[in-house]
Computed example of a mutant assay.
Amino acid sequence: MYVINLSYIASLERVDDALDAHRAFLDEQFAAGVFVAAGPKVPRDGGVILAVGIEREKLDAILAADPFAVQQVARYDVTEFKATRLAPGLNLPMPIEG
């Protein structure tokens, strides 16, 4: 599992210009089962994405295709961790063992 921390490196005006394309990108990754949660940080200086069931190299390639990356409005800090506990009723895809 990965926690992806996005930090805006451009004005909110430029971020907003790329937002519709970024949301379409998120929709694609949710449909593919890669992203399981996403949203803006408070205050709005970036966002957070949770990703599962993918190798790091593939995740890096996916993130490089994010319109926020292509338009250079955000930088990404990716942290991998192994979830050993989940809240009752929370079901996440199993991670790829490597």
Rank of each mutant, 00 (worst) to 15 (best):
V42W: 06
Y8C: 12
R75Y: 11
A18P: 11
A24E: 01
R14H: 01
D66W: 05
V36C: 11
L12Q: 15
P95C: 03
A74E: 14
L6K: 07
L6M: 06
R75C: 10
Y2F: 00
I9D: 15
V52K: 15
F30S: 09
V70Q: 05
F68R: 14
A51M: 04
F81G: 01
R44L: 06
G47K: 02
G89T: 08
G89Q: 11
A69T: 08
P95R: 00
A38H: 04
Q71K: 00
R44Y: 02
I62E: 14
L63H: 08
I49K: 09
T79V: 02
R85V: 08
A37R: 13
S11M: 06
V52W: 13
G39L: 04
S11E: 10
R85D: 10
R23T: 03
E28V: 09
R75I: 09
L92V: 03
F30L: 02
G53K: 06
A38D: 07
K58V: 07
M1Y: 03
L26N: 11
V70P: 06
R14N: 00
I49P: 03
S11C: 11
P95F: 01
E80P: 06
L59T: 02
V73D: 07
L6V: 05
V48Q: 05
A64L: 12
V52I: 10
D77K: 02
I9R: 15
A31Q: 08
S7K: 12
G89H: 11
Y8W: 13
M94G: 14
F25D: 08
A61W: 06
T79N: 05
A74P: 14
G47V: 01
A87D: 15
L26E: 06
T84L: 12
Y2G: 00
G53F: 03
R23Q: 06
D60E: 07
K58T: 04
I54Q: 12
Y2I: 02
F81L: 00
V70E: 02
A31P: 06
V34T: 15
V48P: 06
T79H: 04
A18M: 13
I9H: 15
G47T: 00
V48E: 04
R75A: 09
S7D: 12
E97Y: 06
G47A: 01
A31S: 03
Y76H: 15
L63C: 05
V36N: 10
N91C: 09
F81D: 02
A69K: 09
I62D: 15
Y76D: 15
D45F: 03
G33C: 04
R85S: 12
R85T: 13
Q29V: 02
I96F: 00
M1Q: 05
A64P: 13
T79P: 05
F30I: 07
A21F: 01
Q29C: 02
I96W: 03
F25T: 05
L50T: 13
D16Y: 09
L26Q: 11
I4Q: 13
V34E: 15
A74I: 13
M94R: 13
